[in-house]
């Protein structure tokens, strides 16, 4: 139905505008500190360090064979 090639000038202009907008969006995201993501990251690390959620058996690093150091 639609012709993919031979985009008219308006289409091409919009295309470029969309590209610029998406690039700007990426930049904007990275300027502001992602608080929610940081909280999630903190929780993941705290789970691991404090070995919480042991009931779920999801401990990524099991330290059973680490006995007898020093």
């Amino acid at each position: 139905m639609y012709r993919e090639d031979g985009m008219n000038p308006a289409a091409r202009w919009l295309f470029a505008a969309a590209l610029v907008a998406s690039t700007a969006a990426c930049v904007t995201i990275n300027i502001y500190f992602p608080a929610a993501a940081a909280e999630k990251a903190a929780d993941r690390i705290i789970d691991e360090v404090w070995q919480l959620r042991e009931g779920a058996g999801s401990a990524p690093v099991t330290p059973p064979a680490a006995g007898g150091t020093k």
Binding site: Y2, A10, A11, F15, A18, S22, A25
Partner: peptide
């Protein structure tokens, strides 16, 4: 048709962003 194609392309880009 071309306008609607443009709309779709823009929508895809906004969606990707």
């Amino acid at each position: 048709p071309s306008a609607s194609l443009t709309g779709r392309v823009a929508a895809v880009f906004i969606g990707l962003a």
